[in-house]
């Protein structure tokens, strides 16, 4: 964990629910795909944990859903304003396990962490397939960004307004070596049942501290109680107790 004062470079709305924020000031922070940052927002007591979408030199990119007043505040910030940010939180994805043909699956607000992961895996010359699941065309974002990276991109929409009609589970390819998934709990649990390749899930929970002190985000696993913020947010499939 490193505490940084970061400066807003840009904020833009990607659609009616998602926003993208670029911040400078990473300094010596090393950003690993699947980790998150925890942001102090003026006027609010608890920090807001947000997964890392991309990191390039000194610049951190966050893409987040505007769900409440805290994220609304972030989405209305201007270039030059500063934020107190705890970086390098959580474990991140285990990229060593990817194999030659990793499958990345993101659903809605769970898509952003897949971007940094795809970027890194493509640099390692893996054949990366990305499934991006949305409710409808009006909620789509970042599909072109993923294509520009050079990943094979499959889009699904629940209402059929773009890509394959249905859920990410309706578009699963059969020739992948390992999966990484992040999205709403029903999506992750469906993937847990359907995928027969090994892989890992990124989880979400209301957090107190975000660095393991308060036990606010604990979960029972096959290896006993684990803190989603500190022992996760990424957990291997076999650690999870999602049978029922």
């Amino acid at each position: 964990m490193k505490q940084k004062t970061m400066t807003v470079q840009s904020v833009r709305r990607l659609n009616h629910t998602m926003a993208e924020m670029k911040l400078s000031g990473l300094g010596d922070a090393v950003i690993h795909p699947g980790t998150f940052v925890n942001i102090q927002i003026p006027g609010y007591f608890l920090r807001r944990p947000i997964s890392v979408c991309a990191a390039d030199g000194d610049i951190l990119t966050l893409v987040f859903r505007i769900v409440g007043k805290g994220t609304e505040y972030l989405s209305a910030m201007h270039a030059g304003e500063t934020l107190d940010v705890l970086t390098e939180l959580g474990n991140g994805y285990d990229m060593k396990k990817a194999g030659d043909r990793p499958l990345l699956i993101g659903g809605g607000a769970g898509i952003p962490p897949m971007y940094a992961l795809a970027e890194r895996l493509l640099k390692e010359e893996k054949r990366v397939t990305v499934i991006l699941g949305f409710n409808g065309k009006d909620e789509m974002f970042y599909t072109e960004e993923f294509e520009r990276l050079g990943a094979k991109v499959i889009v699904t929409t629940v209402d059929g307004s773009a890509g394959i009609r249905g859920f990410v589970t309706d578009a699963l390819p059969s020739d992948c070596t390992y999966f990484y998934a992040c999205g709403p709990a029903p999506m992750e649990k469906a993937l847990y049942r359907l995928l027969d390749i090994p892989g890992e899930f990124s989880l979400e929970e209301r957090m107190g501290c975000g660095f393991g002190a308060c036990m606010g985000c604990s979960m029972e696993t096959r290896n006993g109680p684990r803190r989603i913020c500190r022992d996760g947010p990424v957990f291997a499939k076999e650690e999870l107790l999602w049978e029922d």
């Binding site: 007591f45 608890l46 107190g208 308060c214 036990m215 606010g216 985000c217």
Partner: peptide, 22 residues
């Protein structure tokens, strides 16, 4: 193990926790 999640909520000037002695 303590209580089920969510165990944390925010409020003006503070927070609520219901960790339950994990």
């Amino acid at each position: 193990f303590g209580n089920p999640t969510p165990r944390i909520a925010e409020c003006t000037g503070g927070m609520l926790n219901a960790v339950g002695l994990q």
